[in-house]
C-alpha cells in the first residue's frame, strides 16, 4: 500500500511540475520513444516485411501458402493446436493451484512480513533455463523420465515456471477483496460453498483473467522448457520460429511470428472483454 502512496505522490509532483515547465516533460519521454521505435515498432515492421516477401525481397504470398495451402498445412495446424493446448492446460492447472494459495497468502496473519509471498517468488530470481535443467533432474530422480512421459514432464515444468505469474495477480486482487461482502453473505445464511462461488469468485474475476493471460501468452512459445522436458517431441510455435530462422528461412519464420502475434492479440482482446464486463480497471 505504501507503493501506491508513493505513486500518488509522484503523479501529483509530476502534474504540479508540468503546469510550470512543459518542455522538460517531453524530453523525459524521448528515451522511451526511441526504445519504442527501435525495439518494438521497427521489429514488427521487419516481421511483416519478411513475411510478405521472398528471398529476393519481392512481394509474395508464397510464405503463407507454403504453411496453409500446400502439404504442410496439417503440420502448421498441429503446431498451433499443440501450442494452444499446452498453454490452456498450463493455465488451467496454474489457476487451480494458485487460487487457494493466493487466498491463503492474502488472508494469512503470518503474511504480514510477506515471507510466504517471497517464498513463492524466490524461484523467479533464478534464470529459467537453469531451473528447467534442474527440474529435469528432479523429475528423473522421482521416476518421471522425460523420455517416457514427455507431456506430463513438460506441463509440470511449465506450471512450475509460470505459477508465480499466476499467483501474483490473484494475490493482488484478493488483497483488495471487500471483506464485508463475504461476512454479509455468511451472516445472511449462505453456506461456505455458496459464499465462495457467489461472492469470492465473482469479485476475483479480474484477477483470474489477468492471471490467465499472464500465463497463457508466454507458455504458447516457451519452447526451451518443452525442448528440455519433452526431448524435442512437443513442438511449440516458438520452436518453429527458432528453427526456421536457424535454417535461414526468415520469410516463413516471420509468418509464424505473425501467427503468434495474432494469437496473443486475440487473447488480449478476450481479456479486455472480460475485464470490461466486470467493470474492472
Amino acid at each position: 500500500m505504501s507503493n501506491s502512496k508513493v505513486v500518488d505522490n509522484m503523479t501529483s509532483i509530476a502534474s504540479r511540475r508540468s503546469n510550470h515547465v512543459k518542455e522538460p516533460r517531453k524530453i523525459f519521454s524521448i528515451p522511451y520513444g526511441v526504445f519504442l521505435v527501435l525495439f518494438i515498432i521497427f521489429p514488427i515492421l521487419l516481421i511483416f516485411f519478411y513475411a510478405f516477401t521472398n528471398k529476393e525481397g519481392n512481394f509474395t504470398l508464397d510464405n503463407f501458402k507454403s504453411l496453409f495451402v500446400n502439404g504442410q498445412a496439417s503440420s502448421t495446424l498441429k503446431v498451433i493446436g499443440t501450442s494452444l493446448g499446452v498453454a490452456a492446460l498450463t493455465t488451467v492447472i496454474c489457476i487451480i493451484i494458485a487460487y487457494p494459495i493466493a487466498y491463503i497468502l492474502a488472508n494469512s496473519k503470518f503474511n504480514k512480513n510477506k515471507v510466504l509471498v517471497y517464498l513463492f517468488l524466490l524461484p523467479m530470481w533464478i534464470n529459467f533455463v537453469i531451473r528447467t535443467i534442474a527440474t529435469k533432474q528432479i523429475l528423473e530422480f522421482i521416476g518421471l523420465d522425460s523420455k517416457m512421459y514427455p507431456w506430463i514432464c513438460s506441463i509440470i515444468g511449465m506450471v512450475y515456471n509460470y505459477l508465480p505469474f499466476t499467483i501474483l495477480p490473484l494475490y493482488n486482487t484478493m488483497l483488495k477483496l471487500d471483506k464485508s461482502q463475504i461476512e454479509a453473505a455468511a451472516d445472511l445464511g449462505a453456506n461456505p460453498v455458496h459464499v465462495f462461488f457467489k461472492t469470492i469468485v465473482p469479485m476475483t474475476i479480474p484477477g483470474i483473467v489477468s492471471a490467465s493471460t499472464m500465463t497463457f501468452m508466454p507458455t504458447m512459445s516457451s519452447y526451451v522448457i518443452t525442448d528440455a522436458l519433452s526431448n524435442r517431441t512437443i513442438q511449440l510455435i516458438g520452436k518453429q520460429i527458432e528453427s526456421k530462422f536457424m535454417l535461414d528461412q526468415l520469410n516463413v519464420g516471420s509468418v509464424y511470428a505473425i501467427i503468434m502475434l495474432i494469437l496473443i492479440g486475440a487473447s488480449v482482446i478476450i481479456e479486455n472483454i472480460f475485464s470490461e464486463k466486470k467493470g474492472a480497471r
Binding site: 507454403s66 502439404g71 524435442r232 535454417l247
Partner: peptide
C-alpha cells in the same frame, strides 16, 4: 535443401 527442410519440419511436429 528447401524441400529437405520442409520434410524435416513436417516430420518433427
Amino acid at each position: 535443401n528447401e524441400k529437405l527442410h520442409a520434410m524435416w519440419g513436417d516430420f518433427k511436429v
